[in-house]
Write a protein that binds this DNA or RNA. Structure first.
Lengths: 138, 138
DNA sequence: TTATATACTACTTAATTGATAGATTAAATT
DNA sequence: AATTTAATCTATCAATTAAGTAGTATATAA
């Protein structure tokens, strides 16, 4: 069970935008190059993040990307969820129509609790925390 | 990011073996039928669980399967890990040769911590706990 | 109006998932 | 000893998903 590269690249992208001291928008080309990621692939990843509001963009010459809101208001969940699709370990956590043993199933509780562990973490941890972690390492 | 059906089926299989009051081995056929899972598919899932020691088997007529050890000594990790492969959200959590920014990468810490949350849960929670949960519901 | 960079759409390739099918082996029963 | 039973082994397959490419359209600054 692995996180998709979309989420991993997306996280690195958001960190790159977050540590951008400049108020000038950053070119995707530059992030792609410095992170060693395909620019075309990154340009697809950006879309759902923009839809979620954590990224804002500017088209045309001198365009680029900025954080859509302060890093302290961006939860990891806001980054991972749009890229990973709705985040739960099994489908029956979300809807009960899939399985006729939904009510009585003890194993569902397990997957449910494990999903919650991750969701809680992603809700509490913000991009600002990630940036601090990064600065501490550098 | 979903748990594979292998793990889900494996968990239900282990619970079925766990609530088997009889000391007689259980036929895979019967579990497959009552759980609505392909017997052939289940027979593949059983192999890595047996290798891990959480299942013991008996061939031939009146054969079948039993728990390999007391349910209290079977951690969820012993069920999920053999079926899911080594359990971590990104490869760079395990080995550092994949990425040349291993040391300095702050995002890796995120995936690392999320992986640990799940592993800790799976280490603490046992099949016995799952069985209790099941009995409570029935 | 030209250069630049984002936005959109379609396609491709490889890997993984979730099975199915059939032959083989071991043990108990007849 | 022959037969039945059920686990074990090996191979294959179809569908889906993941990961990435390619090309066009659009908006904006100079």
């Amino acid at each position: 069970m692995r996180i998709s590269t979309r989420s991993r690249y997306g996280m690195r992208l958001m960190l790159a935008l977050g540590i951008n001291e400049n108020k000038k928008p950053v070119f995707l080309k530059d992030i792609a190059q410095s992170e060693g990621i395909s620019e075309k692939y990154l340009s697809q990843i950006v879309i759902p993040l923009k839809a979620r509001g954590v990224i804002s963009s500017f088209r045309g010459a001198h365009g680029g990307y900025l954080l859509g809101k302060p890093a302290s208001q961006i939860r990891l969940r806001d980054i991972i969820e749009p890229l990973e699709g709705d985040f739960c370990l099994v489908d029956c956590v979300k809807s009960s129509d899939i399985c006729d043993k939904w009510e009585e199933c003890a194993t569902r509780d397990i997957w449910n609790e494990m999903s919650s562990l991750l969701l809680n973490y992603m809700d509490e941890f913000t991009l600002e925390d990630l940036i601090k972690k990064h600065r501490f390492k550098h």
